[in-house]
Each structure stands twice: as structure tokens, then as C-alpha cells.
């Protein structure tokens, strides 16, 4: 570990400790907002784990989230909550493996289309199974976990996502993804199993998203397909992550924090205009902020540095 990495780790740990204490000092509206923020930070970072290096826009977030939620709903009478979060992760990974194996071998556009309807598809299947096979529409998740507990669980998960992301970056898988991102043909010709690497990464990302869904299950109390598989979530994640920038794992952070506040304000005050504003936000990201806020900042810094080095050489 280098010195700067150590420093980053220390700062991050201190920030997490401070945030973990937060639920004791605030409650109500701000705590709910904090949970929402943590929720989307976890989702967007897990999303970026896969979609950042592969440039494949995944719209499967809501499907994985719902799978995690349902894992808890099904098992809450039998197993303790923390264990169910892990079960949700495993279910998410397995689901990602199935979807990835079917779609990641062919062109990227097909993957996007497939994930686009995945939440709706899973919702239909779950609704069908519940009504026709099990005979009830929803499931109860009654726990004594309050918003503060959910917040701490989410913080722990965010830390885990960053840690895993950092480890992948240092491992062969991360290096393979960089090679694939540069030239898939070269990657293939030097022994990289391109499809398999993508599927593994998709599984990691899907597992984390499902775990977020599992953690959030107690908030809903009554789980039914319509609320667990909410396609809007998939789009919100894409737009927040892209707004922040997906070149760095921490890029989405920059997008989530302001966007959650704005989205909260809009859905409270102009609920009918929500889709219009999401649409405009998508267009703004594509046309104005191609690499997100962090990308734009890095580019500006790079330009200044280059300018500085040019003038430096001029003087020498």
C-alpha cells in the first residue's frame, strides 16, 4: 500500500465513523434523507463497479434490488436479518450469472435492451408465482430495525463495496477489464476470457445491489411486486452515476448527493413533473457533461497542468 492510499483509507475510515454516529444526533426528515442518500450511493457505486469499466449501461438495478428485498421477505421468519442480507447477495449473484451468461456474449446493445425489461419481467414472474402458486399478493417483513439501523447497515455495505472495488482494481480481474476496455480483440488474443470476466463483474455488482434491496426490506414492512421491482430506480441510478462520472469508483458520490436532494424536492413539490425532469437530466448529461462532473473536473485540471508544463518548458 502506498502512502497516499493509506491516507485515503484513513480519511475514509474517519468519515465512515463520523457518519455512523449520525443517527444518534438527527432523526426524522434528515435521517430519512440520509438513508435515501446512502441507499443511492450504495446502488450507484455497485452499478459503477460493472458499468464503469465495461461501458455497458445496465438497467437491471431494480430487478436485483427486488430480488434482495424478496430474499428477506421469504426468509424473515426463519433466519436472522444479517444472514438474510448475505442470502440476498447470493441470490443476486446467481441471477446476474444467468442474465450475464445469456446476454454478455453478444453485442452490448442487446444487453441494454434485455436489462431494460428485466425488472418488469421479474415483477411479472414473482406476481404470478405469488398469486397462482402461493395464493397471497404480498409478504410482511416485521422487524424492530429503524431508519438508524438501516443507515448503519448501508454504511457498512458502502464500505464493503468500495473495498471490493479497490481489491478488484488491484487484482487480475481489474487489469483484465482495463485491457478489455482498451481493445477486446487484443484481450481475447492474450488469454482473457472476455465474456466470463464481464459476467463475474456483473455478478459482483448484482450481489451488492441485491444486498441493498435486502437491507431496505424492513422499511417497506409489506413487500409486494409493484413496490419491490420499481423500474424508475434503475433509471435514477444510471443518471446519478453518470452525472457524477463513472471513470472512478467514487465518481457517483458526487452525483448522488445533490441529485437525491433535488429529486426529493421535486417529488415532494412537483410529483407530476418528475418524469419530465428526469428526461431533461438525461439529456443534460449526454449533451453537456459527457464524463460526468468528476470527468469535467479532471479534464479542467489536466488542461491547467498541461498549460503549466508548456509554459515551464518555454522558460527553460
Amino acid at each position: 500500500m502506498t502512502r497516499s492510499e493509506g491516507l485515503t483509507l484513513f480519511t475514509a475510515a474517519a468519515a465512515f465513523a463520523a457518519l455512523a454516529a449520525l443517527p444518534f444526533v438527527t432523526e426524522g426528515f434528515y435521517l430519512t434523507l440520509a438513508v435515501n442518500m446512502a441507499l443511492y450511493i450504495a446502488l450507484c457505486t455497485a452499478w459503477t463497479l460493472f458499468s464503469g469499466p465495461t461501458h455497458l449501461v445496465s438497467l437491471a438495478t431494480a430487478a436485483f434490488f427486488g430480488i434482495g428485498t424478496y430474499s428477506v421477505a421469504i426468509g424473515i421468519e426463519i433466519l436472522p436479518f444479517p444472514l438474510l442480507i448475505l442470502c440476498g447477495g447470493v441470490a443476486g449473484a446467481l441471477f446476474a450469472a444467468l442474465v450475464g451468461a445469456a446476454t454478455l456474449r453478444v453485442s452490448g446493445a442487446y444487453f441494454v435492451i434485455f436489462t431494460l425489461g428485466l425488472a418488469e419481467l421479474t415483477r411479472q414472474v414473482v406476481a404470478y408465482l405469488q398469486t397462482k402458486v402461493f395464493g397471497s399478493m404480498g409478504l410482511f417483513v416485521l422487524t424492530d430495525h429503524g431508519e438508524g439501523d438501516l443507515f448503519r447497515y448501508l454504511l457498512g455495505l458502502i464500505a464493503a463495496i468500495f473495498l471490493v472495488g479497490w481489491l478488484i482494481g488491484r487484482a487480475r480481474l481489474g487489469f483484465a477489464m482495463r485491457v478489455i476496455g482498451n481493445d477486446e480483440v487484443v484481450a481475447r488474443h492474450f488469454g482473457i476470457e472476455v465474456a466470463r470476466s464481464k459476467v463475474i463483474l456483473f455478478m459482483v455488482s448484482g450481489a451488492f445491489i441485491a444486498m441493498v434491496g435486502a437491507i431496505m426490506a424492513p422499511r417497506y414492512a409489506y413487500i409486494e411486486p409493484q413496490s419491490a421491482f420499481n423500474p424508475t430506480m434503475s433509471f435514477l441510478v444510471v443518471i446519478m452515476a453518470l452525472l457524477g462520472g463513472t471513470r472512478r469508483l467514487w465518481g457517483p458520490l458526487v452525483g448522488v448527493v445533490p441529485f437525491t436532494i433535488v429529486a426529493d424536492f421535486i417529488s415532494a413539490n412537483f410529483p407530476d413533473h418528475f418524469n419530465v425532469i428526469i428526461g431533461l437530466a438525461f439529456l443534460a448529461v449526454v449533451y453537456l457533461l459527457k464524463d460526468g462532473v468528476t470527468g469535467a473536473i479532471e479534464q479542467a485540471l489536466g488542461r491547467r497542468r498541461r498549460a503549466a508544463s508548456v509554459t515551464g518548458e518555454g522558460r527553460a
Binding site: R178, V179, G181, N182, D183, V185, V186, H189
Partner: peptide, 12 residues
């Protein structure tokens, strides 16, 4: 192998 039209990893 090497490639007829050179293929490198430009960002690395």
C-alpha cells in the same frame, strides 16, 4: 501474435 494493422492498448 502481432496484428497486421497494429493493435495496442492506447490508454495504458
Amino acid at each position: 501474435r502481432t496484428f497486421q494493422l497494429v493493435r495496442v492498448l492506447p490508454g495504458m
